[in-house]
Design a protein around this nucleic acid. Structure first.
Length: 965
DNA sequence: ACCGCCGGGTGCC
DNA sequence: ACCGCCGGGTGCC
């Protein structure tokens, strides 16, 4: 520890801890840079070198342990310096000078990633061996070899070293085995998690057995200090069997995990139960000790199987004075029936001192300025509530306004100087391990915010005082003491990242007891602001709720692991070296490691899972039937005409090998055929694209916009080939490929003049990116005037009419990818007197919530049918009122259809669900169904080595199959 | 003695 | 470091 070293280069010094911080940042930084393609690298070979200067540093390493190499260009003694750090980011030493020159060259020119393994560990206090292996793209192999030999080092081709670590004797798996293993990754994670736990009485909904299991597991995860089993205690040290590293201090156990139950199994309810049941020390959520024994009506926690909260009371339960709501404004008083309190403003600031003091008199203390009862909901300084009877949070205008981000209503009254939070409490809530942390922060997509409020309303006893604050809207209360004093704070990812990008983010200042990421897969891309913001939250416990922990790629998991701070895999390099690369390259131990890792933090049950031989939830049956639709003579003729034309064009592209270059054209042809299958009116104004090249810039732009619309308007859920996510802020290149604007802009920035389209390698320029103009649908009327029916429309209508005559209480979802088709369908529906609503992607959140509520309502005269666009709504919406689903046209992505069906085939569904897929006989639709089936088997789906070239072939194959070429 | 040899001081980049 | 390297002391066997 003699090192308070001075790094003269930059002219500043670090104390030890700062060095560590800086190092880990350095490592993290390097990881992002170099490991953009961690799984595509090839091993060039390895060589033996030495690490020197051990005695100046405190970092320890074991035999066989992996180390990371970090360039230190600022090092005052040698600008080629390469630092060696252990898994925890502590510096171990430096690479010997002569070797460092070589490494610096290779690393700085990005010729290869260099990974180190220490074959013998530390044998003396001065130097030790390190085996360096070089990984990179094939095209860089020669350059690397030249560098190495020119400096008279020798690259050993294989892993020649006899020790562990580098020369993993890997058993390669077949693609098939890999896929199975991957699919089963989350299955059977139950074994040692059994045990049930009842929720505290404040939760009025009885938990189902699997929910009690989840609650039990979550409590254990939060309370139990046991380490995951890849840690072994070896004497004084803790040894990590995956990285072969050890540390002296007990590694920080993840306090939390991933609840990855299928949609509809009650993750929200379970989480609410967790929040209420497992406050500090496994006791129910309650006010801090200051609570004097107070008169309470119903307080006792039920018997707790784990005995942890044997004294089980103090559930923050008290009988609020019924209807006592001095903080409500008069005009809303009548809505104050049985409601969750949603505090959107300082209660005290409304000047209800008497109310507060009454609370205090009752022994309801400090707790924060806003202790509202469950009766009193507040939004923006006004009381707002959710009506349990109406079930609709959004009925309230103010709340709806808050949701849509409007700022209407009274300006907030300023608090008059005094804070209800005592200085003592304020101070303690800042302290490091913070026994005072009490608030749970829930972050969710805007679309499910109202669902949380509904569920709180539904599952928490009406007489429970739960301080829930909706941190949303421009008037949100940013006072950190106030936020800290809540039981729960609800917010959205957007609000979080907006705050984060500002100066002093309140959410990042509060010391949270628990942070819950709802739909946590949202943060799977580590480059987004949201993800960065989420990582910086200061909390003791962390939870991720998601139905789809891995969407496309193993890489999706990393960010989740990083959020949980599952050491040491929250650092990219270790994740890549121990998990990502081994698994993608088919290494069996890698897969086992991955399983071990996932297992220790994840609980996942599917609707098909069973507990003790019984299904988790008994959902009604669900059946799929395919209804073949026969085109009329006239339709068939039109279709064949378009098909022949399209085939000619596409087969030419295939022959030329230019399918991808003309991808948008190809897509346009396919879309047209699919549209023909539904209704000719979908085609819109068919621009005659004859493939003529010479056009004016204006015409070119027009065409690109049209292509963009085609690509996006089909619901095919285009992925951006850069971020591999659904495209956001879409732009189209002159070569007609669609990307997110920020993604492609980044490519252009980094490659400058040489920038090429990631998909077709055509030249691209920032000035040539075309985006959607802000114009609206014009010729709706045209559609309606020249109305004609189609075979598919007829097929649907006869099904609906038959259904209505058999049972007019059955509700249906009518789903299409083409929103114009939904518009067309409105005509016959109206004609036949069906009451329907419509939900599509163009609607704002407020409107969506209204529509969903209307559809779910069982009030007489509520709609029987919902017209639903496939992509609309996204995750989590509940349409359980419907028990019939009509899928009007097949989707590229079968998962999208499943998801859609799941919106009604979920908890709360009382009837058997019947799904009807309309498929036009002898058409491109039939081929799509075939491809859907094949797609599910593709290994790429699971492990997606998604470099463009591989994607190319599979896409081209797909297109050929579709066109029967 | 413009060497060799010995032994103490010393040590990352 | 049970090394290598450096530089001062030393000098037949």
């Amino acid at each position: 520890m003699q090192s308070r070293r001075w790094f003269g280069g930059a002219g500043f010094s670090f104390a030890d801890d700062q060095v560590t911080e800086t190092l880990s940042q350095a490592i993290r930084g390097t990881g992002e840079e170099l490991d953009r393609e961690p799984d595509t690298g090839v091993l060039f070979g390895s060589l033996r070198g030495s690490v020197v200067g051990l005695r100046y540093y405190t970092g320890v390493v074991n035999k066989g342990e992996m180390v990371s190499l970090v360039r230190q260009p600022q090092n005052p003694y040698d600008c080629n310096a390469v630092m060696v750090a252990n898994v925890y980011g502590s510096q171990v030493g430096h690479i010997k000078r002569e070797l460092a020159v070589l490494l610096a060259n290779i690393m700085d020119n990005n010729l290869a990633r260099v990974e180190g393994v220490v074959p013998f560990g530390v044998t003396n206090q001065f130097t030790m061996s390190v085996v360096l292996s070089f990984w990179g793209r094939e095209e860089n192999r020669d350059a690397v070899l030249r560098q190495i030999t020119s400096r008279s080092f020798k690259l050993q081709s294989g892993p020649t070293d006899g020790s562990r670590g580098l020369p993993r004797k890997s058993v390669l798996l077949t693609a098939e085995e890999l896929k199975n293993a991957f699919d089963n990754l989350f299955e059977n994670l139950m074994e040692d998690k059994i045990g049930e736990r009842e929720a505290v009485e404040a939760v009025c909904t009885p938990l189902l057995p699997h929910q009690k299991q989840a609650l039990s597991w979550m409590c254990v995860c939060e309370n139990n200090a046991a380490l995951p089993h890849f840690w072994e205690v070896k004497g004084e040290l803790f040894y990590n069997t995956l990285t072969h590293s050890s540390v002296r201090e007990r590694p920080q156990r993840v306090r939390g995990g991933i609840l990855a139950d299928d949609m509809g199994l009650g993750k929200t309810l379970t989480t609410i139960a967790l929040i209420l049941s497992n406050f500090h020390h496994g006791k129910p959520l309650c006010e801090p000790e200051k609570s004097s024994p107070e008169p309470k009506a119903s307080t006792t926690a039920r018997k707790n199987p784990e005995g942890k909260s044997g004294d089980g009371d103090q559930a923050e339960v008290s009988v609020g004075p019924a209807g006592h709501s001095p903080c409500m404004s008069a005009n809303q008083a009548e809505t104050q029936v049985e409601s969750v309190d949603v505090v959107q403003e300082d209660v005290v600031e409304d000047g209800d001192e008497d109310w507060v003091s009454e609370k205090k008199a009752k022994g309801r203390p400090q707790g924060g300025k806003a202790t509202t009862t469950k009766k009193a909901a507040k939004t923006k300084g006004k009381a707002v509530s959710t009506s349990r009877k109406g079930g609709a949070v959004l009925e309230d205008l103010d709340f709806a306004a808050a949701l849509s981000g409007l700022t209407q209503g009274a300006p907030q009254k300023k608090s008059v100087g005094k804070s209800v939070v005592s200085p003592v409490e304020a101070a303690s809530s800042q302290s490091t391990d913070d026994p005072a942390a009490r608030a749970t922060l829930i972050i969710c997509p805007l679309s499910v915010l109202s669902n949380w409020l509904d569920q709180l309303d539904q599952h928490v006893r009406a007489d429970v005082k739960l301080n829930v604050y909706l941190y949303y809207g421009s008037e949100r209360n940013r006072d950190t003491h106030f936020l800290s004093s809540q039981h729960m704070v609800l917010t959205t990812y957007n609000v979080l990242s907006a705050d984060y990008s500002g100066s002093a983010s309140p959410l990042h200042t509060v010391s949270w007891l628990r942070v819950v990421l709802d739909e946590g897969h949202i943060i799977r891309n580590p480059n987004t602001q949201q993800s960065k913001a989420v990582l910086k939250l200061n909390t003791q416990r962390r939870w991720i709720l998601t139905g789809t922990p891995i969407q496309n790629n193993l890489r999706d998991l990393w960010m989740l692991v990083a959020f949980l701070r599952l050491k040491p895999f929250d650092v990219r390099e270790w994740w890549n070296r121990v998990i990502q690369r081994p698994v993608t390259q088919g290494d069996k131990t890698g897969l086992q490691n991955l399983q071990a890792l996932v297992k220790c933090v994840t609980l996942r049950r599917t609707k098909a899972s069973r507990v003790c031989g019984r299904p988790l939830v008994s959902l009604p049956e669900r059946s799929v039937r395919i209804e073949e639709v026969e085109l009329t003579q006239k339709e068939r003729e039109e279709y064949e005409l378009a098909r022949t034309e399209g085939r000619t064009t596409i087969s030419r592209y295939v022959a030329e090998g230019t399918v991808l270059r003309n991808y948008a054209d190809v897509l346009a042809i396919l879309v047209r055929l699919r549209q023909f299958c539904c209704h000719p009116g979908l085609l819109g104004k068919t621009t005659t694209h004859t493939g003529v090249v010479a056009v004016t810039p204006a015409e070119l732009r027009e065409r690109l916009i049209m292509k963009l619309r085609l690509v996006l308007g089909t619901g095919s859920d285009e992925e951006c080939a850069v971020c591999l996510d659904s495209v956001r802020l879409p732009v189209i290149t002159h070569c007609a490929h669609v990307y997110c604007r920020p993604c492609i802009a980044e490519v252009i920035r980094s490659e400058q003049e040489q920038a090429r389209c990631p998909l077709c390698r055509g030249q691209i320029k920032a000035s040539e990116l075309v985006e959607f103009p802000l114009e609206e649908e014009e010729e709706e009327s045209n559609l309606l005037e020249n109305w004609r029916s189609s075979s598919k429309v007829e097929a649907l209508m006869s099904s609906l009419l038959r259904l209505r005559s058999e049972d007019d209480s059955i509700r249906s979802l009518v789903v299409s990818q083409f929103t114009r088709f939904l518009t067309i369908l409105e005509i016959p529906l109206r004609e036949e007197g069906f009451k329907f609503v419509r939900l599509d992607g163009t609607m704002n959140q407020k409107r969506r919530a209204q529509v969903i509520q209307e559809f779910q309502s069982d009030a007489p005269g509520s709609p029987l049918i919902m017209l639903l666009s496939l992509k609309a709504g996204g995750v989590g919406i509940n349409l359980s009122a419907a028990s019939r689903v009509f899928l009007m046209d097949p989707a590229w992505n079968p998962a999208a259809e499943d998801q859609c069906v799941d919106r009604c085939h979920r908890l709360g569904q009382k009837r058997d669900v019947v799904i009807t897929k309309f498929i036009v006989k002898g058409s491109v639709e039939e081929n799509m169904v075939k491809i859907q089936r094949q797609k599910q088997d593709l290994v790429e789906k699971a492990f997606g080595t998604k470099n463009p070239s591989e994607r190319k072939t599979s896409r081209v194959d797909e297109i050929r199959a579709l066109m029967e070429l």
